[in-house]
């Protein structure tokens, strides 16, 4: 089912997710579109309430229970639209095509199974094969994710490991599927800075070595700058800006991206911080028009008239900005 060479690995087009409620559907994600090439890392950056985790769940079809959500648009993975795929075929895609690394490894791992058992199960589900082969593969994977003396760790239960080691195990399980795409949802958020840096370096290295693509979801601009090739900035369910990581950090075009950068303190050179007034809107109280307009220092009356379409700014065909007056 390999995609033709000119097609991206993943193409998300006009994706919308609404929560079905008795009072009517509450739209969360709206008109989300992006491509992900093979061997590429796309970061989805956003604050809480931006919808970034829901995006991961929508792509992997892990929104539970499914009947509570109305999903529209297309999520084309290796040429197949996942939105319309039957559940059994989707399980197959999740088992072989894509893997997810969650923020809280302690919740994502099975607490009553040893680490070795959990990796071996994944390996055998994929390859079949005997127990000894699966065990060898599990040891190799633990070694690949930098866990010291992996033979001895096979018998450990998740609670016996530190947060950083658990996250490494999660990555090993993800690798066991040999996926084309890894979706990492805030994979380093609950870790200490030195461990966070280790796990980021590991994710970057295993992605490269295995030729996978990655969607890296985070609120941490430092982590995003270190690991991403391209970045999508999400705010209140809309993609506000999409650019290469160098373009985005050097010259943000959307006022929200610029404000986010100006509000982030830097360890390497202290600068005067500029706070963004107000707070991210709740999804049941979204403002009309541009969702950032009420907090935007450059807002004009036209900003609240209609939701701006996302388009390429003048002279930058590779970028996308959802703003009627992008920054120069």
């Amino acid at each position: 089912m390999a995609a033709p060479a000119d097609q991206p690995l993943l193409r998300v087009e006009g994706l919308g997710v609404a929560v079905r409620r008795r009072a009517g559907a509450l739209p969360i994600l709206d008109d989300v579109s992006f491509d992900l090439a093979a061997d590429e890392t796309l970061a989805i950056v956003g604050e809480s309430g931006s919808g970034k985790s829901m995006l991961a769940l929508a792509i992997t079809r892990l929104l539970m229970p499914p009947e509570n959500y109305a999903v529209s648009g297309r999520v084309e993975f290796q040429g197949t639209d996942l939105v319309a795929l039957p559940a059994a075929a989707m399980r197959e895609v999740r088992g072989r095509g894509m893997a997810v690394v969650f923020q809280e490894a302690l919740n994502a791992l099975n607490p009553v199974l040893t680490v070795g058992r959990q990796i071996e199960e994944t390996v055998r589900r994929r390859d079949g094969g005997d127990a000894a082969t699966a065990r060898r593969e599990a040891i190799r994977l633990l070694d690949e994710v930098g866990i010291p003396s992996p033979e001895r760790r096979l018998g450990d239960y998740p609670h016996q490991l530190s947060g950083g080691m658990r996250q490494r195990v999660m990555i090993a399980i993800a690798l066991a599927c040999r996926p084309a795409l890894v979706i990492a949802d805030e994979p380093t958020t609950s870790l200490d800075v030195t461990i966070q840096s280790q796990v980021l370096a590991l994710l970057r290295d295993v992605r490269r070595q295995n030729g996978m693509s990655m969607i890296f979801i985070s609120h941490n601009l430092g982590a995003v700058a270190a690991i991403a090739d391209r970045v999508a900035v999400l705010y209140a369910g809309h993609v506000m800006e999409l650019a290469t990581v160098d373009e985005l950090f050097a010259a943000p075009r959307h006022p929200y991206t610029a404000a986010l950068l100006a509000a982030t303190p830097r360890v390497d050179r202290p600068e005067k911080l500029a706070a963004i007034g107000g707070a991210v809107p709740r999804f049941d109280e979204l403002p009309p028009g541009c969702r950032f307009a009420p907090r935007c220092p450059r807002a004009m009356p036209a900003c609240s008239a209609a939701v701006p379409t996302i388009r390429a700014p003048d002279g930058e065909p590779g970028r996308r900005v959802r703003c009627i007056a992008p920054l120069p």
Partner: peptide, 10 residues
């Protein structure tokens, strides 16, 4: 280990 929001520091 504290990453600045700057791809040059990657």
């Amino acid at each position: 280990s504290s990453l600045p929001p700057d791809p040059a520091a990657r």
